[in-house]
Amino acid sequence: MKSRHALIALGLVAMMAAVVVSPARAQEPVATPSPVASEAQGAANAGPMQAAEAEAKKDFVMPHVLNSHEIVIPWLGHGLEKEIELPRWAPIHVGPLTLDLSPTRHVVMLLLSAAIGALVLVVAGRGAEKARREGRPTKGFAGAIEATILYLRNDIILPNVGHHGEKYVPFCLTAFFMILFANLLGLVPYMATATGNIAVTSTLAGIAFIAIEVAGMRALGKRYVNTIVYWPHDLPLAVKAPITFIMTPVEILSKFTKPFALAMRLFANMTAGHIAVLSLLGMIFTFAQLLNYSPAAYGAAVIPVALTTVIMCLEVFVAFLQAFIFMLLTAVFIGQIRESAH
């Protein structure tokens, strides 16, 4: 039964990959770099040299990766896309702080991915509950999600978090699914990767940091202080004092490097993947320029498209991998600080 669920889960992943990759490829030559392409075509009539100059100055990679106040939706018009300006709200002042809560592109993506994730998992949860009420094993989609959650819970989170770690399971799973759905949504055409924004990943890492420290406080009690102030018990005071003096900053630093690495890893992986894809797509236009927009340029575009497809497949894997790593390392860090009691 378990293996069957694993197979379904694998099928789901493959389906997601297919869904994500195929429209991405279809859209490539037109949608993403459309401002450039249309400009280039417009300029092509005037002369190849001027077009090249105009194109060279246009950056279409960074605006795609960075946050903005617009979202792009599919549109059966010029460039097959339409930019929608998001509303701008007046910043909120909380004491000395100014908080601009206007929905940006990444906020919208984050909410959308969270909504999709919640929907998928709640549906699976209902399926599992129904199965339980009917006294039969969970089947189909809910079974696949159940197998995934069960695997993460029993084989990844619980062994790493340590004894009586059940209460940290929902936290780790939430981090996993939130990151996973944000990562996957970023691979869908017209969408953006919220987890490719350092603000999102650092918030997640901050939450992980708090969770780790609170787990330490709960497990160690007063001895939690020892995770900040290094104080070896089995050494004479004369040795202990300088060691403590040297090691305490290291201990404190190591507390912050862990979540910092979490934030940077996720952000860098997601951003790098997108930059790689966009750079490969940019090669279409570089070839077009080099071949003077002749029909051969269309033929040459096959190579970047093929490469992009491969990278996109890799990106789907990375989307799962990074979500998994974030969750795994959070579990490991929670386990570490809880273990340091013994």
Binding site: N67, P103, V107, A194, V200, S202
Partner: peptide
């Protein structure tokens, strides 16, 4: 670039 609004929304 840090983005307080986005951080808030993430949280």
């Amino acid at each position: 670039t840090s983005d307080g609004g986005l951080m808030f929304w993430s949280l």
